[in-house]
């Protein structure tokens, strides 16, 4: 899975680095001064790196907790996001990370304590007001857990601050440490979902939708709050039937009271990012499809977009009338 490991010299003795290196005993680490020596440089081949990714262990020095974009949230007035990792194990056609970074290598920032300090500082500044912290926008929150121990570290922190909500966005069916812990009410496990046959073509390397539903069904039964994230909504032949079947399957298996929130997001790419994505993945059906430039974004035409959101929202409401439902148009 990992081709080579690079470690910033400054953190070579960090306990998290040592334990990660033990897991990859067969790889000799290469010591570097800063992850920027390798990551996101010009003249890198994203597709090759995606097939043979390196792991870079680094220390994040600033921007640990950032304001979420406008129009992005699941009910709270204050929204922040934080990224302990750049890049993801999965290889999804619509993933904005491909357009954002020229590298597919994984950068894991091991100084979790600094993220923790800033999260607590933000919570304290807001003096008990409701705030959501999103994780999983520059990576998948759970997929790398066995190596990163990210969730294991951050859950107990949020447990102490019930007014702060943590969203873990994922496609992973890796459920540790959630299955071994008592659920905490201010953590939402948010699964990215789309019809199974669509995911089969677009979500390369990611677990199938059937497996994702099984995972969220299990976590819901354990008492965890579940977020359903239909972002992006994908258009195609029989899309209404495909989304209807998907919703039916989910609500047949998952107790409605375990659903914390549902969000929909139209397919959208900033124009320049879209160009990069097409260059990297010229054989993608999704990127070759009927997308149009609206303002600065490549999207489906407005009519399709609105029809999809309205259809899906109404259908969700027929299953869970009081569901917290949001449409996300913000970009990370």
């Amino acid at each position: 899975m990992i081709n080579q490991i690079f470690v910033e010299r400054e953190i070579e003795n960090h306990h998290r680095v040592k334990s990660i290196l033990e897991r990859f005993a067969s790889l000799s680490p290469i010591y570097i001064d800063h992850y920027g020596e390798l990551f996101n440089k010009k003249n890198q081949n994203f597709r090759v790196q995606k097939s043979f990714p390196n792991l870079i262990l680094a220390k994040k020095n600033n921007g640990h907790v950032l304001q979420a974009p406008e129009n992005f949230g699941i009910g709270d007035a204050y929204n922040f996001y934080f990224s302990h990792m750049y890049n993801c194990l999965y290889d999804c056609d619509y993933c904005f990370l491909q357009g954002m970074y020229s590298s597919a290598d994984f950068v894991l920032f091991v100084n979790y304590e600094k993220f923790e300090d800033e999260i607590i500082e933000k919570i304290k500044q807001l003096e008990g007001r409701k705030v959501t912290f999103f994780s999983g926008y520059d990576c998948d929150s759970l997929a790398f857990e066995k190596i990163s121990g990210f969730v294991e570290h951050f859950l107990p922190i949020f447990e102490k601050f019930p007014n702060a909500l943590l969203e873990l966005r994922t496609k992973s069916i890796q459920q540790e440490p959630l299955v071994f812990k008592a659920p905490i009410q201010n953590c939402v496990i948010a699964y990215s979902l789309m019809p199974g046959n669509v995911a089969k073509q677009l979500d390369r390397k990611a677990p199938s939708i059937e497996k994702r539903i099984k995972a969220l069904e299990y976590l819901a039964k354990k008492g965890w709050q579940i977020g359903l994230r239909f972002d992006p909504l994908i258009y195609g032949k029989d899309w209404k039937v495909l989304y209807s079947d998907l919703f039916e399957e989910i609500f047949k298996r998952v107790a409605k009271d375990s659903i914390h929130s549902v969000t929909f997001g139209p397919l959208r790419f900033p124009k320049e990012m879209f160009k990069n994505l097409v260059k990297l993945n010229p054989e993608s059906k999704l990127l070759s499809g009927p997308l149009t430039l609206r303002g600065t974004k490549m999207t489906y035409n407005a009519e399709i977009e609105l029809e999809m959101i309205n259809f899906c929202e109404n259908l969700i409401k027929s299953y869970v009338p009081g569901a917290l439902s949001f449409t996300c148009r913000g970009d990370f």
């Binding site: 019809p195 046959n197 258009y235 195609g236 032949k237 059906k285 499809g289 149009t292």
Partner: peptide, 12 residues
């Protein structure tokens, strides 16, 4: 022609 196509996600 291309913009009229509805992608069939069942076709590989």
């Amino acid at each position: 022609i291309l913009d009229e196509i509805e992608i069939d996600w069942d076709e590989t």
